[in-house]
Amino acid sequence: MAKSTITFEDINVTVTVPAGTRIIEVSEKVGSGITYGCREGDCGTCIMKVTNGWNHLTEPSVLEDKVLRENMAGKHNRLACQAQALGGEISVKPV
């Protein structure tokens, strides 16, 4: 199965994951400072910055785009409870 690596820059930890893994499935277990509220793409609590490998994540859905906009998210920000790794190297950190 295709693999991807997700690096959590705030704690300097890299996790190898199968393609399709959401950031939320690993970030808490390794102790990254990305935080969650609703866990279903509604509240915007989990906005994170993607510092590398933006194109290795699934495209944001229409709903995610709306939540990012309403929360005035910056460039290269995504919802950690929604974004899935597709392969390659990805780096993220809390905003």
């Binding site: 690596t5 930890v13 890299t14 996790v15 190898t16 994951v17 499935e25 690993v26 277990k29």
Partner: peptide
């Protein structure tokens, strides 16, 4: 050490996470 950011860079496989 974690508090001071002194822990070495770690590479983990997702399967090994509890």
């Amino acid at each position: 050490q974690e508090l001071m950011g002194l822990r070495a860079r770690k590479v983990i496989d997702m399967a090994d996470l509890v």
